[in-house]
Amino acid sequence: MGIFGRKPRRDARDTTRDASFEFFSEDEGARFRAGVHAAFAEQGLEVTVGADAVTDSSGRQFGLGNLAAVCHNDSRGPRVWPELTRRHIGIMLRAMDGPSVLDTMPAEKFRAQLYPRLLPDEMAGSDGFDYARPLAEGLREVLALDLPESVMVLPRSSLEHFGDVPALRERALDNLRRLPVESHETVEQEKGAGVDVVMGESMFTASRVLTLDELVPRVTGRGLSTDGALVAMPFRHQLAFHAIRDRHVIAGLNTLAQFAAAGFEEGVGRITPDVYWWRAGALTRLSTLAEDGIKITVDGEFQAVLERLIEG
Protein backbone atom coordinates (compact mmCIF):
# COMPACT_ATOMS: atom_id res chain seq x y z
CA MET A 1 0.00 0.00 0.00
CA GLY A 2 2.84 2.41 0.78
CA ILE A 3 3.86 2.71 -2.87
CA PHE A 4 0.73 4.78 -3.58
CA GLY A 5 1.86 7.43 -1.10
CA ARG A 6 5.27 8.01 -2.62
CA LYS A 7 6.02 11.39 -4.12
CA PRO A 8 6.95 11.54 -7.83
CA ARG A 9 10.64 11.04 -8.37
CA ARG A 10 12.61 14.20 -9.22
CA ASP A 11 16.34 14.65 -9.66
CA ALA A 12 18.21 15.60 -6.50
CA ARG A 13 19.06 19.26 -5.93
CA ASP A 14 22.78 18.52 -6.06
CA THR A 15 22.58 17.36 -9.70
CA THR A 16 23.62 19.81 -12.41
CA ARG A 17 20.90 22.47 -12.74
CA ASP A 18 19.25 23.76 -15.90
CA ALA A 19 20.82 27.05 -17.02
CA SER A 20 17.50 28.89 -17.48
CA PHE A 21 15.16 27.21 -14.99
CA GLU A 22 17.14 26.40 -11.87
CA PHE A 23 14.28 24.39 -10.33
CA PHE A 24 14.88 21.78 -13.09
CA SER A 25 17.92 19.58 -13.29
CA GLU A 26 19.76 19.66 -16.62
CA ASP A 27 18.07 16.38 -17.64
CA GLU A 28 14.63 17.57 -16.51
CA GLY A 29 15.08 20.76 -18.53
CA ALA A 30 15.87 18.72 -21.64
CA ARG A 31 12.83 16.52 -21.02
CA PHE A 32 10.62 19.58 -20.57
CA ARG A 33 11.80 21.21 -23.82
CA ALA A 34 11.36 17.95 -25.76
CA GLY A 35 7.77 17.90 -24.55
CA VAL A 36 7.27 21.49 -25.68
CA HIS A 37 8.57 20.66 -29.16
CA ALA A 38 6.26 17.62 -29.36
CA ALA A 39 3.20 19.62 -28.23
CA PHE A 40 3.73 22.28 -30.90
CA ALA A 41 4.23 19.53 -33.51
CA GLU A 42 0.83 18.07 -32.53
CA GLN A 43 -0.65 21.47 -33.39
CA GLY A 44 1.02 21.37 -36.81
CA LEU A 45 3.69 23.92 -35.91
CA GLU A 46 7.42 23.41 -36.32
CA VAL A 47 9.26 25.50 -33.76
CA THR A 48 12.81 26.20 -32.70
CA VAL A 49 13.10 25.59 -28.96
CA GLY A 50 15.49 27.92 -27.17
CA ALA A 51 16.57 28.06 -23.55
CA ASP A 52 13.52 29.99 -22.32
CA ALA A 53 11.33 30.57 -25.40
CA VAL A 54 10.30 29.00 -28.69
CA THR A 55 10.01 30.61 -32.13
CA ASP A 56 7.75 29.39 -34.93
CA SER A 57 8.32 29.67 -38.69
CA SER A 58 6.48 33.01 -38.86
CA GLY A 59 8.70 34.56 -36.19
CA ARG A 60 6.20 34.44 -33.33
CA GLN A 61 7.82 33.87 -29.93
CA PHE A 62 6.35 32.03 -26.97
CA GLY A 63 7.96 32.35 -23.54
CA LEU A 64 8.43 29.17 -21.50
CA GLY A 65 8.86 30.58 -18.00
CA ASN A 66 5.28 30.20 -16.79
CA LEU A 67 4.85 26.75 -18.30
CA ALA A 68 8.11 25.57 -16.76
CA ALA A 69 6.95 26.76 -13.33
CA VAL A 70 3.54 25.09 -13.79
CA CYS A 71 5.24 21.77 -14.56
CA HIS A 72 7.72 22.10 -11.71
CA ASN A 73 5.03 22.93 -9.14
CA ASP A 74 2.63 20.15 -10.09
CA SER A 75 2.82 17.57 -7.29
CA ARG A 76 2.15 14.69 -9.71
CA GLY A 77 5.63 15.03 -11.18
CA PRO A 78 7.10 14.66 -14.68
CA ARG A 79 4.55 12.09 -15.81
CA VAL A 80 1.95 14.85 -16.23
CA TRP A 81 4.25 17.39 -17.93
CA PRO A 82 3.12 16.37 -21.47
CA GLU A 83 -0.54 16.86 -20.52
CA LEU A 84 0.13 20.24 -18.89
CA THR A 85 2.23 21.34 -21.86
CA ARG A 86 -0.39 20.39 -24.46
CA ARG A 87 -3.10 22.23 -22.51
CA HIS A 88 -1.00 25.36 -22.02
CA ILE A 89 0.08 25.56 -25.65
CA GLY A 90 -3.47 24.91 -26.87
CA ILE A 91 -4.82 27.81 -24.81
CA MET A 92 -2.01 30.07 -26.02
CA LEU A 93 -2.57 29.29 -29.69
CA ARG A 94 -6.35 29.66 -29.48
CA ALA A 95 -5.91 33.10 -27.91
CA MET A 96 -3.51 34.18 -30.65
CA ASP A 97 -5.24 32.67 -33.68
CA GLY A 98 -8.91 33.21 -32.87
CA PRO A 99 -10.95 36.38 -33.38
CA SER A 100 -10.31 39.10 -30.82
CA VAL A 101 -12.79 38.99 -27.95
CA LEU A 102 -12.64 42.79 -27.87
CA ASP A 103 -14.47 42.97 -31.21
CA THR A 104 -17.62 41.34 -29.85
CA MET A 105 -17.63 41.88 -26.08
CA PRO A 106 -20.31 44.32 -24.79
CA ALA A 107 -18.86 47.32 -22.98
CA GLU A 108 -20.44 46.48 -19.62
CA LYS A 109 -19.15 42.90 -19.72
CA PHE A 110 -15.69 44.25 -20.56
CA ARG A 111 -15.76 46.57 -17.56
CA ALA A 112 -17.06 43.79 -15.29
CA GLN A 113 -14.08 41.57 -16.18
CA LEU A 114 -11.43 44.29 -15.90
CA TYR A 115 -8.76 44.13 -13.19
CA PRO A 116 -5.48 45.85 -12.34
CA ARG A 117 -2.43 43.68 -12.82
CA LEU A 118 1.12 44.10 -11.51
CA LEU A 119 3.97 43.60 -13.94
CA PRO A 120 7.74 44.07 -13.75
CA ASP A 121 9.01 47.12 -15.63
CA GLU A 122 10.45 45.12 -18.52
CA MET A 123 7.03 43.58 -19.28
CA ALA A 124 5.07 46.84 -19.10
CA GLY A 125 7.51 49.16 -20.82
CA SER A 126 6.74 48.32 -24.46
CA ASP A 127 4.80 50.36 -27.00
CA GLY A 128 1.13 50.66 -26.17
CA PHE A 129 1.62 50.65 -22.41
CA ASP A 130 2.51 54.31 -21.96
CA TYR A 131 -0.47 54.52 -19.59
CA ALA A 132 1.09 51.96 -17.18
CA ARG A 133 1.21 53.44 -13.67
CA PRO A 134 4.63 53.27 -11.96
CA LEU A 135 4.19 51.82 -8.48
CA ALA A 136 7.79 51.64 -7.29
CA GLU A 137 11.23 50.73 -8.59
CA GLY A 138 10.83 47.74 -10.89
CA LEU A 139 7.05 47.58 -10.72
CA ARG A 140 4.09 48.94 -12.74
CA GLU A 141 0.34 48.58 -12.85
CA VAL A 142 -1.60 47.90 -16.06
CA LEU A 143 -5.17 46.86 -16.86
CA ALA A 144 -6.07 43.30 -17.83
CA LEU A 145 -9.16 41.41 -18.94
CA ASP A 146 -10.09 38.20 -17.13
CA LEU A 147 -11.15 35.58 -19.70
CA PRO A 148 -12.24 31.94 -19.20
CA GLU A 149 -8.93 30.44 -20.36
CA SER A 150 -6.48 33.29 -20.01
CA VAL A 151 -5.83 36.89 -18.99
CA MET A 152 -5.37 39.55 -21.67
CA VAL A 153 -3.03 42.39 -20.73
CA LEU A 154 -4.43 45.46 -22.47
CA PRO A 155 -2.49 48.12 -24.36
CA ARG A 156 -3.96 51.61 -24.61
CA SER A 157 -5.42 50.89 -28.07
CA SER A 158 -7.61 48.15 -26.57
CA LEU A 159 -8.99 50.49 -23.91
CA GLU A 160 -9.99 53.48 -26.00
CA HIS A 161 -13.30 52.00 -27.17
CA PHE A 162 -14.44 51.32 -23.59
CA GLY A 163 -13.61 54.59 -21.79
CA ASP A 164 -10.75 56.68 -20.47
CA VAL A 165 -8.00 55.06 -18.42
CA PRO A 166 -8.72 56.71 -15.01
CA ALA A 167 -12.38 55.64 -15.08
CA LEU A 168 -11.50 52.12 -16.24
CA ARG A 169 -8.90 51.83 -13.49
CA GLU A 170 -11.46 52.77 -10.83
CA ARG A 171 -13.79 50.08 -12.14
CA ALA A 172 -10.93 47.57 -12.16
CA LEU A 173 -10.17 48.37 -8.51
CA ASP A 174 -13.83 47.93 -7.58
CA ASN A 175 -13.79 44.51 -9.25
CA LEU A 176 -10.62 43.64 -7.33
CA ARG A 177 -12.25 44.56 -4.01
CA ARG A 178 -15.10 42.14 -4.72
CA LEU A 179 -12.85 39.14 -5.27
CA PRO A 180 -13.17 36.50 -2.53
CA VAL A 181 -10.17 35.74 -0.36
CA GLU A 182 -9.38 32.17 -1.38
CA SER A 183 -6.73 31.30 1.20
CA HIS A 184 -4.93 33.00 4.07
CA GLU A 185 -2.33 31.71 6.49
CA THR A 186 0.32 33.10 8.82
CA VAL A 187 3.97 32.05 8.66
CA GLU A 188 5.90 32.78 11.87
CA GLN A 189 9.60 32.05 12.24
CA GLU A 190 10.00 34.23 15.30
CA LYS A 191 7.33 35.19 17.83
CA GLY A 192 5.79 38.51 16.84
CA ALA A 193 7.40 38.49 13.38
CA GLY A 194 4.61 36.74 11.53
CA VAL A 195 4.09 37.09 7.80
CA ASP A 196 0.52 36.85 6.50
CA VAL A 197 0.15 35.15 3.13
CA VAL A 198 -2.89 35.52 0.88
CA MET A 199 -3.04 32.94 -1.95
CA GLY A 200 -5.47 32.07 -4.69
CA GLU A 201 -6.09 30.74 -8.17
CA SER A 202 -7.04 34.24 -9.28
CA MET A 203 -4.46 35.82 -11.57
CA PHE A 204 -4.97 39.04 -9.61
CA THR A 205 -4.16 37.85 -6.09
CA ALA A 206 -0.91 39.84 -5.98
CA SER A 207 -2.78 42.91 -7.25
CA ARG A 208 -4.54 43.05 -3.87
CA VAL A 209 -1.60 45.10 -2.63
CA LEU A 210 -3.37 48.04 -4.33
CA THR A 211 -6.17 47.75 -1.75
CA LEU A 212 -4.02 46.54 1.15
CA ASP A 213 -5.59 48.87 3.71
CA GLU A 214 -8.94 47.16 3.07
CA LEU A 215 -7.55 43.62 2.76
CA VAL A 216 -5.56 43.52 6.02
CA PRO A 217 -8.51 44.03 8.41
CA ARG A 218 -10.56 41.66 6.26
CA VAL A 219 -8.14 38.75 6.80
CA THR A 220 -6.60 39.60 10.18
CA GLY A 221 -9.37 41.48 11.97
CA ARG A 222 -7.04 44.39 12.68
CA GLY A 223 -6.25 47.44 10.58
CA LEU A 224 -2.84 48.85 9.71
CA SER A 225 -1.06 51.51 11.73
CA THR A 226 0.16 54.73 10.15
CA ASP A 227 3.52 52.98 9.63
CA GLY A 228 1.88 50.64 7.12
CA ALA A 229 3.28 47.24 6.21
CA LEU A 230 6.06 45.34 4.50
CA VAL A 231 4.77 43.59 1.38
CA ALA A 232 5.95 41.07 -1.20
CA MET A 233 4.33 39.99 -4.47
CA PRO A 234 6.66 37.25 -5.76
CA PHE A 235 4.19 35.88 -8.30
CA ARG A 236 0.64 36.57 -9.43
CA HIS A 237 -1.06 34.05 -7.12
CA GLN A 238 0.45 35.31 -3.87
CA LEU A 239 0.62 38.43 -1.68
CA ALA A 240 2.51 38.40 1.60
CA PHE A 241 2.66 41.16 4.19
CA HIS A 242 3.94 41.99 7.66
CA ALA A 243 1.99 44.71 9.44
CA ILE A 244 4.45 47.18 11.02
CA ARG A 245 3.56 47.58 14.69
CA ASP A 246 6.62 47.07 16.90
CA ARG A 247 10.30 46.11 17.16
CA HIS A 248 9.66 42.81 15.31
CA VAL A 249 9.69 44.74 12.04
CA ILE A 250 13.36 43.84 11.37
CA ALA A 251 12.74 40.11 11.83
CA GLY A 252 9.62 40.50 9.68
CA LEU A 253 11.65 42.16 6.94
CA ASN A 254 14.26 39.39 6.94
CA THR A 255 11.59 36.66 6.87
CA LEU A 256 9.67 38.36 4.08
CA ALA A 257 12.80 38.92 1.98
CA GLN A 258 13.66 35.21 2.11
CA PHE A 259 10.04 34.29 1.44
CA ALA A 260 9.78 36.61 -1.58
CA ALA A 261 13.02 35.38 -3.15
CA ALA A 262 11.98 31.74 -2.81
CA GLY A 263 8.49 32.38 -4.18
CA PHE A 264 9.83 34.33 -7.13
CA GLU A 265 12.20 31.50 -8.06
CA GLU A 266 9.50 28.86 -8.31
CA GLY A 267 6.22 30.73 -8.82
CA VAL A 268 4.00 30.87 -11.91
CA GLY A 269 3.60 34.38 -13.28
CA ARG A 270 6.63 35.87 -11.57
CA ILE A 271 6.43 39.55 -10.60
CA THR A 272 9.25 40.56 -8.26
CA PRO A 273 11.61 38.97 -5.70
CA ASP A 274 11.78 42.26 -3.80
CA VAL A 275 10.17 43.52 -0.58
CA TYR A 276 8.45 46.91 -0.47
CA TRP A 277 7.33 49.27 2.28
CA TRP A 278 3.62 50.05 1.85
CA ARG A 279 2.41 53.23 3.51
CA ALA A 280 -0.77 55.12 2.60
CA GLY A 281 -0.86 53.38 -0.78
CA ALA A 282 2.73 54.25 -1.75
CA LEU A 283 5.42 51.60 -2.25
CA THR A 284 9.15 51.95 -1.54
CA ARG A 285 11.54 49.13 -2.41
CA LEU A 286 13.61 47.85 0.52
CA SER A 287 15.22 44.65 -0.76
CA THR A 288 16.68 43.47 -4.06
CA LEU A 289 17.85 40.05 -5.20
CA ALA A 290 21.38 40.17 -6.61
CA GLU A 291 23.68 37.40 -7.83
CA ASP A 292 25.40 37.31 -4.45
CA GLY A 293 22.19 37.23 -2.44
CA ILE A 294 19.53 39.51 -0.96
CA LYS A 295 20.46 43.14 -0.32
CA ILE A 296 18.38 45.31 2.00
CA THR A 297 18.58 49.09 1.66
CA VAL A 298 16.51 51.55 3.69
CA ASP A 299 16.10 55.28 3.21
CA GLY A 300 16.14 57.88 5.97
CA GLU A 301 12.37 57.85 6.40
CA PHE A 302 12.15 54.10 6.96
CA GLN A 303 15.25 54.19 9.16
CA ALA A 304 13.48 56.69 11.41
CA VAL A 305 10.54 54.31 11.72
CA LEU A 306 12.90 51.46 12.67
CA GLU A 307 14.67 53.53 15.31
CA ARG A 308 11.40 54.72 16.86
CA LEU A 309 9.98 51.20 17.07
CA ILE A 310 13.17 49.59 18.38
CA GLU A 311 13.79 52.26 20.99
CA GLY A 312 10.14 52.22 22.01
Rank of each mutant, 00 (worst) to 15 (best):
F23R: 09
E26W: 14
L306W: 09
G98N: 14
R236A: 05
G98D: 13
T16H: 06
L239A: 01
A282P: 00
I294Y: 03
A19W: 09
Y115A: 03
L139G: 03
E28T: 11
S287V: 03
C71R: 07
S183Y: 12
S287I: 05
P82D: 11
F4P: 01
R171T: 15
V219Q: 02
L145H: 06
A206F: 13
E170C: 00
L67C: 12
A193E: 04
A206D: 08
R171E: 09
R60P: 00
G192Y: 14
S207K: 06
E42S: 13
I271K: 03
S183L: 13
F32V: 13
L114T: 12
G125V: 08
R6K: 13
A167F: 06
G200H: 12
D299I: 01
F110I: 13
A39F: 14
R10A: 04
R236Y: 01
R279Y: 03
V49R: 02
R10T: 10
R9A: 12
F235W: 09
R10V: 11
V80Y: 07
P116S: 10
E22P: 05
G200R: 10
F235N: 06
A95K: 13
A257V: 09
V231H: 02
P217A: 09
R279C: 01
R31S: 13
C71W: 10
R87S: 15
D299S: 03
Q258L: 01
L168V: 09
G192H: 13
I310M: 03
P78D: 11
E190C: 08
P134N: 09
S20L: 12
R31M: 13
A172D: 06
N254Y: 07
W278V: 04
D213S: 15
M92T: 15
S157C: 05
V195W: 02
A206G: 04
R111H: 12
G269E: 08
E311T: 15
L139P: 00
V268R: 02
L119M: 10
T272R: 00
P8K: 07
R9I: 14
F21N: 07
V47D: 00
V195K: 02
R270E: 03
P273W: 01
A68Q: 07
E83L: 13
S57A: 14
D213K: 06
D27K: 14
V151A: 07
G5C: 05
F24K: 06
G221H: 09
D227S: 06
